Simulated assay, not measured.
Amino acid sequence: MKRPSFSPLIAAIVLFCFILFIPNQYLLPMITDKKVEEEAVDLDFEIFQGEIIQKKMLESPKYLPIYGSSELSRLDTFHPSNYFKVNPIGVTPFLVGRGGMQSFVHFLNFADQKNELKHKKLLFILSPQWFYRQGATQESFSANFSTLQAYKFALEPKVSEKLQIEGAKRLLTFDVVKNDAMLATLLKAKIHKDKKTQMKAAMIKPVAILFVKVLEKRDLLHAILDVPLTTLHPQPALVKNKTWDELERNAAEMAKAKSTNNRFYIDNFYYNKRIKPKIEQLRGFRKNSSLLVSPEYQDFQMVLDVLKEAKAKPLFVSVPVNGYWYDYMGLSKKDREGYYKKIKQQIEKEGFPVLDLSSHEYDPYFLKDTIHLGYKGWLPIDKAIIEFVHKY
Rank of each mutant, 00 (worst) to 15 (best):
Y392G: 12
L225I: 15
K85Q: 08
S289W: 11
I125D: 08
P314V: 12
A251F: 06
L292C: 08
H222S: 04
K287Q: 10
L292S: 14
S60H: 02
N288K: 09
A181K: 15
K152F: 04
L355F: 03
D356T: 04
A181N: 14
T197R: 06
R170P: 01
N82D: 01
T370G: 05
L210Y: 14
S142C: 05
K242V: 00
K256D: 08
F264H: 02
T137D: 13
T197K: 09
R218S: 07
F269G: 09
M57G: 00
I19R: 05
T77E: 01
L357S: 00
E216H: 07
K342L: 12
P29M: 14
K273A: 04
K391I: 15
P8C: 08
K342A: 09
K196Q: 09
L43G: 02
F18P: 05
N241D: 13
E59S: 11
F300W: 08
I19K: 04
G68N: 12
V212N: 05
S73C: 02
R249H: 07
Y392Q: 15
V159L: 01
A251W: 06
E348W: 10
I209L: 15
V96H: 09
L43A: 03
A12Q: 03
D363A: 15
E38Q: 15
K169R: 10
M203E: 11
D42M: 07
L225Q: 12
I371G: 11
E246S: 02
L186A: 10
L373I: 03
K114F: 06
Y63K: 02
V293W: 04
M30V: 05
L28F: 06
P295F: 08
V354A: 07
P65N: 04
K205Y: 04
M329V: 14
L123S: 06
Y83C: 11
F78P: 06
K55C: 01
K118D: 02
L72P: 11
Q198P: 15
S358Y: 12
H390P: 02
V214D: 00
K152A: 06
E156S: 11
L163P: 00
V303G: 08
L183N: 14
N144E: 15
S289Q: 13
T173K: 12
E253G: 04
P61K: 03
Y270F: 10
G284W: 12
K114D: 07
G284H: 06
W130P: 08
L379P: 03
N262Y: 02
L64F: 05
K195H: 14
H372A: 08
L163Y: 01
D33E: 14
Q235D: 05
V227I: 06
R170W: 01
D363L: 13
E71F: 11
L183C: 13
L238S: 00
A208I: 02
P380T: 05
K178P: 00
R274F: 15
H372M: 10
E216N: 11
D44V: 00
S7E: 11
H390Y: 07
S294I: 12
E166D: 09
N250Q: 09
R274L: 13
L95W: 04
N250W: 01
V317G: 04
T370N: 10
F84L: 01
T230Y: 09
N268W: 01
E116M: 07
K152Q: 06
I385F: 10
I53K: 14
